[in-house]
Each structure stands twice: as C-alpha cells, then as structure tokens.
Nucleic acid binder design. Structure first.
Length: 82
DNA sequence: GCTGAGCGC
C-alpha cells in the first residue's frame, strides 16, 4: 500500500521516517521528495507497506502525530502518474 | 543558515 505523508520536517531523514512507520508494521520503501535543483527537502514523501492492515493502522496512528516538532499528515497515496 | 502548499521519475 502506498502512503502519502506531508508536513514532514525538512531535516527529517528517510530512515527516521521509516522508523516511525516500522513501529506499526513492515515497511518496504521510504521516499522523501526533495527539490531537484536545490536538493532541499519539500517536506513530504511516500511510504510503502505490503501489509494492508498494518498500513491502514499506521495511517490512523501516525496521522496528526508529532514528528520532530511537526504534525504529520498521513494519507493513502494517489495513483501514480499514468 | 534560507521555508511550509501539498502527490513521486
């Protein structure tokens, strides 16, 4: 299941974000999108979890949760670009 | 060192 996470602290690393989701289930991949030119974090990313139940539970639990002084916004990711 | 809407190559 693809998960979209926004309002992420710009200093957050992918492994740190992965640890947050790993508490609620198995995490296969974490991607934090950064600016292509300045290489600066955009403050949002994607997390992929194979287990649908754990993914749904993680979204419910982590959404609105504080992460590095920021309230995380976790939703189900939209379908990728066609 | 810089900032803050929101969907990725």
């Amino acid at each position: 299941m693809n998960i979209y996470v926004a309002n992420v602290n710009f200093r957050a690393k992918e492994e740190e974000l992965r640890e947050v989701f790993a508490r609620y289930g198995e995490v296969t991949s974490v991607k934090i999108m950064k600016d292509r030119e300045t290489n600066r974090s955009r403050g949002f990313g994607f997390v992929e979890m194979p287990n649908q139940e754990q993914a749904a539970a993680a979204i419910q639990a982590i959404n609105g949760q504080e992460f590095q002084q920021r309230k995380l916004i976790v939703k189900e990711a939209l379908p990728p670009r066609p």
